[in-house]
Every structure is written in structure tokens, then in C-alpha cells.
Design a binder for these strands. Structure first.
Length: 940
RNA sequence: GCAGGGGUGGCAGAGUUUGGCCAAAUGCGACGGGCUUAGGACCCGUUUCCUUUGUGGAUGCGAGAGUUCAAAUCUCUCUCCCUGCACCA
């Protein structure tokens, strides 16, 4: 049994004291691997490991390939989540406190986490411990934290460069807002961690007959204006007359209060819902006057609290009218639904489309709001996608188009105004409903800038994307990304240079920070005030020279010069690793920012995108309570098994799956290899034999395929070949009588190195067990020797396997008849069959070979006496399975030798004595059926 | 809707770029057998259907059509599933 925990810590100590992961620029080619610095507001779990593990495998592999590899790590602290967590702990929120306790954090430490900086540093510590324990080959001298003053100077510089390129613009912006706490609300501040969904709707003005105000009716679907039969208000709710931007409206009091965060709202007076019910409302498009009714479903705190009723297209409206009729409302009884659009392109759909979605029978009973809502969603979707207008000015147009036109028509003519709502009714942790607040003067990064986009496209072109199929997502993302709001009123981070009251948002301050790693170990002692524009301009842009930069900053010439050299050296080749969920924001912004700030030679060279980690078949999430902390996973299985399972058990783009059974499977195989290495003394060196060459051939083939796979980060392919195929090969080698100590040592040594990027601790241990004193982690990657590939020998071994398999099949059939055979006779086919077989193997063209036989070309070519009749019969019998013919030249003499050589093995496997002979000299009834690579089998 | 990914045997999951040793790797499960006092571990076999003193045949990789001597693999149409659509990290 391997003590995985023991070897983990042993080799981690040795590597650390040998400083093999702390590189400096030298004469080798550089290779820099980075992954997003983790956000440290909670414990590290195995989900984090996918990206970092993949990056580490690549880093370790490239190191062995002879590159000078830098794999740095930092910590992301910027933004609101850490503040939010602290706040929740302060408020004694049991959910978060229980989570912390479950992770094993002492009460006293939880207490201290009310200080966000303590919380961050606590988890930084945890992450570092876990990352070290899993064996990441990180240069720990370069840990930057996104709120270090030096980091902030760098971000300020970045924004000044962006600003000087005209990429920062100002404008209006909508945010989620808690009226109670008076602050912006993001996902981390809501109940159940939902993102407040801000949506734009249109408020249509229905002039109230005889009054100087209009009803403001909010809707997503202005195109249904042609089908409005009435208006709904909430019975019993308080409404108000108010003034917004010079217009007077009636709307619910609650709505007016919410809209005050978007507009300047002046309330004139309150008005009861019953007063509104008595009035007439003029449709701004059709000019028709309609009545108002009480609607059971109306929520006076949503939108404007006044709803247009389109019974033909909205199940709720239809149901509400039906309900009114049931209660004896005679005016409602006169209302006929008006069809506005049809999902049938010929207009042949039903006259009252809502009937296709709503179970009208159920309307006679109790109201089932959930069912009506579901019908509404379905109808809305279908009509949006397939609908064609059948009435009004835009008759014949598709709905999406018609909606856009009607929207701009109405807002343009002053018949409507735009407003924002929280579509998902998100609620702040304090319990208040979130509202939409309009902020003027928000700063945006303008990713819509065409020149910038062009540069980003160029940058993408110059980068390798892994997996290859991931590229199209980037192409889309570059076109799609537009304005991004960058200023926040709260959170940790760097202040926006243009507005010192604002913090730079946390994805925007992490787009080019990887470049800072290259010099972090040099500047971490430098006072942050000295890191001015001249310094960064020189180090990262090469502007000016070291002397003047040193003079203007007060930093020593040596340091300035070293920084520039370090950046220039390391940033020549960078490989960025991240999860696929970051393609549409972080990774795309990463490309954009590199493209505009740095010289082309420092642009990203490779971007690798990976999937996530499933746990026992389920997506990991806090709410499911199935997140597995890295430290407990390691405690169970050791670092290498976890690395293997989490990082290598799926293709790069697919989700990998962590499960105990998978982990056990990996461990068993590692144990097998280890035991074999332990038992090497039982074998002794000898001359190379057939089966030794077979193993060498397999090994070299494996080296080549693993190397190719890792280059493409196809780690599943690589790891399967390295571990699973290897154990199968080793078992077979021993079974076939292989026992050469030198060969086994060679094989295991190569295997140790091949596995080293994936299972570094195990490999290091194996490497030393085999008598080596160097570090496997720093060894040269094995190179596949083409000369050792022996296709023929592999084919021969395959032949033996096939022969054994077929023999067992026959023996079984015979056994069913109650016979117990003692001997198997193999009859190797005649030479002419081999000639035809090889001829067919060339191009698998049956008719060509037939022609050869008939025309006599065959005899001319091969100088052999053929029996035309039998040849034709043989070829036509082969016609059906021509696909299965192997493209390997064989002959009967060799095949006979192979079988004779393997007699003892076959005999052991089948339990029978083995005899072999040629077809020509055989009297066996099975002789005629013999074929190349499929000898006749007779048991007796 | 837009964009991205996918549909393979009881399950998980390769194979698709470059069509042909593909009835389809590997793992798990199930069943039968061996070994054991027993269980575990381990070993052998079976695991689409039919056929069988043999290595044969049929069907088959979401559905349908096409290209080809040959299709899981290429083309087209359809269908279903998953993910993202932001200012949250």
C-alpha cells in the first residue's frame, strides 16, 4: 500500500527546498502559465481544481520539455462578495455561519471574520495550503493580492492608458437598489443569491377621458396595443396622480414610489381604485375608449400597477374577464377578444389564440394562477418567435420587428415612455424589494469601439484556443461585447482615476494583471508611490529608457531595468487557463485589454478553456451541500488521485466527474504499478526477446501519443494511455512470460515521467524507487523512439490474442456438447490466400483483384501457380468482410512460427495441448476454412 | 430569440477532425463460474437479436433523406437536451 499522504508531503518539501518552481529569466525559452486568481470569500473546493490543475499539468509538462516555466498565483479580493460575507457574519446569518463551521473554522475565527480583511486573509491562507497540498508547481514568491497598493498603482495606470485611447465613456445606467439600506444590490446581497434582473418595459399612455392625466400602463408587448379591450387596476389599492418629466399620470402609489428612483416623480394627489374604475381610457393608437376593471392578478407594486388587457393573447387577461362575467359584470360580458397576431404564417390560426394555451374549462372552477402563468409564458414565447401581425399598421411583419417599430413609434410620438423593472422580484437580504435606480454619469469601458474590436479580433487570430472548437465562442463574444459599466459605489478595490468616489469593478481590474506577476517579486518591496506612469510605461510599453524612468520614479536603475527584462522575457509566451463560463466576460476582456495596451509581441499566445467538476453526478453547489473541500478530498485519497480524477477524467471542454469509485479505480492502478516496481528484484536482466520488443514498441507508441495529447491538452486521452493502457500492457507482458528486469525498469521509468505532470508525487516516488536521484519533476520528458515501433510484432501479439479468443469460443461450444477436448490444432492458411489477402488489403477493391485473377496478371506478378477457381471463390467470400482486412503484410511461415512460439502461453490460457501445421500438409477438415491471420481450429 | 455545446450499448464515456481492422475502447453495474467457512479482494466468461463443433448473419450509434464499393464518422432537413445572454465574481 502506498501512503499517499506521506509521499505528498515528502516530495512537496523536497521540491520546495530545491526551489525548482521559482524560476528567473535565463537562456531557455520561457513559458508562462496563468489561471484566474481565485476569489477568496470561502473555502477552496475541488471545483477550483479543474482550472488550476489543468494549468499545473501543462506547466509541469512544459518544464520537462525544457522550457523555463513560470506558474504564478495571486488572490482576488476586489468587489463586494467579501464585504457581503463579512456583513452576513456580523448579522449572525445562520446559513453562512454554518457553512464556515462545516469547513472546520473555529468560532473565534468566525467572530473575527466580521472584519473583511481578516476574512480574506484567512481564506488566502486556506487556498495556499490547499494548492500546496495538491502539488501546484507555483512560484509562491509572486503572490499578489488585488488590493495591494502596488496592484492599485498598476490598475490606475491601466485605466489611464485606456482613457488616453478614448475608451472610457460616461452615461446613464440602471442598477438594482435597496431603498431600505440605500445601496446598490448585486447577486451577493439578495435572498437566495439571485441576480436582480433588470428589464426595460414600455409605459403606454392612455389618456383619461375628461382629465388632464393619462393612465400609465407598463407592458413588454406594445404590439398588442391593437387588441386592448380594457384596462385592469387592483381593486382596493391606493393610486396617485403624479407628474413625471412634465407629464401627468395615474399609477399605483407603490409604483410611483419605485419610479422615483428612475425619474423625478412629483405626487399631486391620491386617488382610489374605485374612482379609476369609473373612467374611460383612450387608446393612443386606435383612438378607441375602453373601460377599467378590477383584475384579480394585478400587483400594484409591479410596473405601474395598471395593466392593459389583451384577452386574445394573454391568459391572465382572459381569465380575469371570465371571472368578472361569472360575478355578473355586464360590461365585461360584452367584451370580445381582438386578435392581433397569428402564429400561422397564413393567418389560419384560431380567432382567439389564447384558447390554444388556456384550459378554458378550468376557468369555471377555482382560479389556478400557476397554470395560467404557465400558459402565459408559453403563449408569449411562441408568439414572439413565430407570430405575424394580422392587424394595424405593421400587418404582415414578424412580431420582433413589429414590436421594435411600434415601440419607437410610441416613444417617439410621446405616447409612451420607457421604464425599468426588476423582472424576477428579487429581494434584498434585509427583506425589502429591490428597485431599479438610474445613475447618471456612470463610467463605461466601450468594448463596442470598432477599432478596439478590430484589435481584439487580431489578437484572437494570433492565439491558439484549446480546445480548438472553443474558438467560435470567442469570435462571437468579441462581436457581442459592448459597453461595460466599470464604476461601483461600494466594494474593495482600486479607485477610478477619473472619479475618486468610485471603485473599479472587479472584472475590469483583472484583465491584464498577469503581466504584473513577471515583476512582482522584484517590486514587492518598492514603495507604491514610486510606481508611477513613467515606471509602468517603461516596463510594460518600453517607452523611454531605464535611466530616465529610474530618475523620475526614484527607484534604482537596476530594479527598473530588471523589471523591463523580466516582463519582456516572461510575457513572450503566455498560456491563459480558465473555465468556459468566463469566455463571455473575463477572457474576452482579457483579449481586448491586451490588444490595446501591449505591443503585439506580448499578446496572448494560448487560451485554454475547461469545463467544470461534477460531484457524484451532480453539479456542485452550496445549496445542494455537496461541495467537497480540497483538503478533505486529499485526506481521503491523496493529492495525485484527486488530480487525476478531477483534472484528467474528462475532455477539456466537458465536465469532469469526481466520485469515490473513480478515485478508487485510479488508486488501484497506481498501487499496481507501485507493487510491480517494488517487486523488480524478482526479475533479472536478460537478452531481449520477442515480447520485450513488443513492450518497447507499445511504450514508444504510448510516449508519442501522450506527448501529442498533452500538447493539445487532451488530458483524458493522455491519462488513459499513461495509466489504464499501461497496466493492461504490463499485465499482458508478464502473462506472456516477459521477465526482463531491464525492460521493466525502462518501462516503469518512462511511465514515472509520463505520469509526472498528472501524478507528480507518485511519479517522484516511483522515480526514486527505480534508483534515480534526480527529480522526476525536473527531468527531461521522454521522447518516443520511432525505431522501436514494431508494427509487425504488435500484430503478431494481436494474432495470438485473437487465436486464443476464438479457441475459447470453440472450446465452449464443444463443452456444451459434453466433450472435453485435450488438444487444439491450428491450421495456417496456404500461401496463395496470403497473396490474395495482401492484394485486397492494398485498396480493398474486390473487382480489381478479381480482374487480376481472370486476366492472369496475378500469376505474372507473383510467379506462383494459382488455382483460378479456388482463388475466385476465396476472393468473393472475402468481399463482404473486405473492410476487416488488415493492411499488414504477412506470410504463412511467419504465422506458423508465431503460433509455435506462443504454444505454452496458448496452452496455459486454453488448458489444451497446442499443435500447429500448414494448410497444404494438413488433413484436417478445418483446413479449407483457414484464412490469413485466422487459422483453422480443430479441437479434439 | 441569439450564441455555444451535445444526443453512441443497462449506466458513465471514447470513437466524428483524417469514412474502411467498429457490434463499437475503457470504467462501472448485472449475471454465471473459479477461489474462499463466509464476505471482501482477485481471476475467467456472458451482457442487441438469431445461428453455431467455431472465427457466420441480421439489426444498430436521436429521426429521416442523400453522397460512397463502404457512414457512428461527410452533406442536408428535422427533433430533443444542456449552458450562457453580463455589469455578479
Amino acid at each position: 500500500m502506498i501512503d499517499f499522504i506521506e509521499i505528498d508531503s515528502k516530495w512537496q518539501r523536497e521540491w520546495e527546498s530545491a526551489k525548482i518552481f521559482e524560476p528567473s529569466p535565463d537562456s531557455r525559452e520561457s513559458y508562462m502559465v496563468t489561471a484566474p486568481f481565485p476569489y477568496v470569500n470561502g473555502p477552496p473546493h475541488i471545483g477550483h481544481l479543474r482550472t488550476y490543475g489543468t494549468a499545473d499539468v501543462l506547466a509541469r509538462y512544459k518544464r520537462m520539455k525544457g522550457f523555463n516555466v513560470l506558474f504564478p498565483m495571486g488572490w482576488h479580493v476586489t468587489g463586494t462578495p467579501i464585504l457581503a460575507s463579512s456583513k452576513r457574519i456580523k448579522a449572525k446569518d445562520p446559513d453562512i455561519i454554518n457553512d464556515m463551521k462545516a469547513f472546520g473554522i473555529e468560532d473565534s475565527d468566525i467572530e473575527k471574520m466580521t472584519d473583511p480583511i481578516f476574512l480574506a486573509s484567512y481564506f488566502i491562507d486556506e487556498f495556499r495550503k490547499s494548492f500546496k497540498a495538491i502539488g501546484l508547481s507555483v512560484d509562491w514568491r509572486r503572490q499578489l493580492i488585488s488590493i495591494n497598493p502596488q496592484f492599485s498603482r498598476f490598475i490606475e495606470w491601466q485605466f489611464s492608458v485606456l482613457n488616453s485611447n478614448g475608451l472610457l465613456t460616461q452615461g446613464r445606467h440602471q442598477i438594482g437598489w435597496c431603498p431600505n439600506e440605500n445601496n446598490a444590490v448585486g447577486m451577493h446581497d439578495t435572498k437566495h443569491d439571485v441576480e436582480p434582473e433588470i428589464e426595460k418595459v414600455i409605459g403606454i399612455k392612455f389618456k383619461v377621458d375628461g382629465e388632464e392625466y393619462s393612465a400609465a400602463c407598463a407592458t413588454y408587448r406594445p404590439e398588442t396595443i391593437y387588441g386592448v379591450t380594457n384596462i385592469f387596476v387592483k381593486e382596493g389599492a391606493t393610486y396617485v396622480i403624479c407628474e413625471i418629466e412634465g407629464n401627468r399620470y395615474c399609477m399605483s402609489k407603490k409604483a410611483a414610489e419605485k419610479l422615483a428612483y428612475q425619474f423625478s416623480v412629483k405626487v399631486i394627489k391620491e386617488i382610489s381604485s374605485s374612482e379609476l374604475l369609473g373612467k374611460k381610457y383612450i387608446n393612443p393608437v386606435t383612438g378607441e375608449a375602453v373601460s377599467a376593471f378590477p383584475g384579480f392578478f394585478v400587483d400594484d407594486s409591479f410596473g405601474t400597477g395598471m395593466v392593459i388587457s389583451v384577452p386574445a393573447h394573454a391568459p391572465f387577461d382572459y381569465a380575469a374577464l371570465a371571472e368578472l362575467v361569472k360575478r355578473g359584470n355586464s360590461v365585461a360580458a360584452t367584451i370580445k377578444p381582438v386578435k392581433v397576431l397569428d402564429i400561422d404564417s397564413k393567418g389560419a390560426g384560431p380567432d382567439i389564440p389564447v384558447m390554444s394555451y388556456l384550459d378554458t374549462e378550468s376557468l369555471s372552477g377555482a382560479i389556478d394562477s400557476a397554470a395560467i402563468e404557465e400558459a402565459g409564458i408559453k403563449q408569449y414565447r411562441e408568439e414572439l418567435h413565430k407570430g405575424i401581425m394580422v392587424t394595424g399598421e405593421y400587418k404582415g411583419l414578424r412580431i420582433k420587428e413589429a414590436r421594435e417599430k411600434i415601440w419607437t413609434d410610441m416613444t417617439g410620438k410621446g405616447n409612451a415612455f420607457e421604464l425599468y423593472i426588476i423582472a424576477n422580484n428579487a429581494v434584498c437580504r434585509c427583506g425589502w424589494a429591490i428597485v431599479v435606480k438610474t445613475v447618471d454619469g456612470q463610467w463605461f469601458l466601450n468594448y463596442g469601439n470598432e477599432k478596439w474590436k478590430a484589435k481584439a479580433r487580431e489578437a484572437l487570430k494570433g492565439a491558439v484556443v484549446l480546445p480548438k472548437k472553443g474558438r467560435s465562442a470567442f469570435e462571437r463574444a468579441i462581436e457581442w461585447i459592448d459597453l461595460r459599466a466599470v464604476a461601483r459605489s461600494q466594494g474593495l478595490g482600486t479607485k477610478l482615476p477619473m472619479d475618486n468616489t468610485k471603485i473599479i469593478e472587479s472584472l475590469s481590474d483583472s484583465t491584464i494583471y498577469m503581466s504584473l506577476y513577471t515583476i512582482w517579486n522584484i517590486i514587492s518591496g518598492v514603495e507604491s508611490e514610486k510606481l508611477n506612469k513613467e515606471f509602468f510605461d517603461f516596463v510594460f510599453l518600453g517607452k523611454g529608457d531605464a535611466e530616465s524612468a529610474a530618475k523620475s520614479t526614484g527607484i534604482s536603475y537596476e530594479i527598473v531595468k530588471r523589471c523591463r527584462e523580466a516582463f519582456d522575457y516572461w510575457y513572450g509566451f503566455t498560456s491563459r487557463h480558465s473555465g468556459m463560463d468566463l469566455v463571455f466576460n473575463h477572457l474576452t476582456m482579457y483579449l481586448f485589454n491586451h490588444a490595446i495596451i501591449f505591443d503585439k509581441k506580448y499578446w496572448p499566445k494560448q487560451i485554454a478553456v475547461n469545463g467544470s467538476v461534477l460531484c457524484e453526478g451532480e453539479k456542485m453547489s452550496k445549496s445542494l451541500g455537496n461541495t467537497v473541500p480540497i483538503k478533505s478530498a486529499i485526506g481521503r485519497h491523496g493529492a495525485d488521485v484527486i488530480r487525476f480524477v478531477v483534472v484528467c477524467s474528462a475532455d477539456l471542454y466537458a465536465d469532469s466527474e469526481y466520485s469515490d469509485s473513480a478515485a478508487n479505480g485510479v488508486r488501484e492502478r497506481l498501487e499496481y504499478i507501485n507493487t510491480l516496481a517494488d517487486n523488480l528484484k524478482l526479475y533479472s536482466p536478460a537478452e531481449l526477446t520477442h515480447i520485450d520488443y513488443w513492450l518497447y514498441s507499445k511504450l514508444n507508441r504510448k510516449i508519442i501519443s501522450i506527448t501529442n495529447a498533452i500538447e493539445e491538452l487532451e488530458l483524458r486521452t493522455a491519462s488513459t494511455a499513461a495509466l489504464y493502457d499501461s497496466t493492461i500492457e504490463l499485465k499482458r507482458y508478464l502473462l506472456r512470460g516477459g521477465s526482463n528486469q531491464l525492460v521493466l525498469t525502462d518501462y516503469l521509468s518512462s511511465l514515472a515521467l509520463l505520469l509526472s505532470p498528472i501524478t507528480p508525487h507518485f511519479s517522484e516516488d516511483l522515480w526514486h524507487m527505480l534508483g534515480n536521484s534526480t527529480f522526476a519533476a525536473a527531468e527531461k520528458w521522454p521522447s518516443g523512439n520511432e525505431a522501436m515501433l514494431a508494427g509487425k510484432i504488435e500484430m503478431e501479439e494481436k494474432l495470438i490474442d485473437d487465436v486464443i479468443e476464438d479457441s475459447k469460443h470453440v472450446l465452449e461450444l464443444v463443452a456444451k456438447k459434453g466433450k472435453q477436448p485435450k488438444e487444439i490444432k491450428y491450421i495456417v492458411a496456404s500461401e496463395w490466400k496470403y497473396i490474395l489477402n495482401n492484394e485486397l488489403a492494398k485498396d480493398k477493391n474486390v473487382s480489381r483483384v478479381m480482374d487480376m485473377i481472370k486476366s492472369g496478371e496475378l500469376e505474372n506478378t507473383y510467379d506462383f501457380k494459382f488455382d483460378i477457381q479456388r482463388c475466385m471463390g476465396f476472393v468473393s467470400s472475402m468481399a463482404k468482410k473486405v473492410n476487416a482486412i488488415r493492411n499488414v503484410e504477412t506470410n504463412p511461415a511467419d504465422e506458423l512460427d508465431i503460433i509455435n512460439d506462443a504454444k505454452s502461453y496458448i496452452s496455459k490460457e486454453t488448458g489444451c495441448k497446442v499443435v500447429a501445421e500448414g494448410e497444404d500438409s494438413s488433413a484436417s477438415p478445418k483446413a479449407a476454412g483457414s484464412m490469413p491471420l485466422k487459422p483453422g481450429i480443430e479441437v479434439s
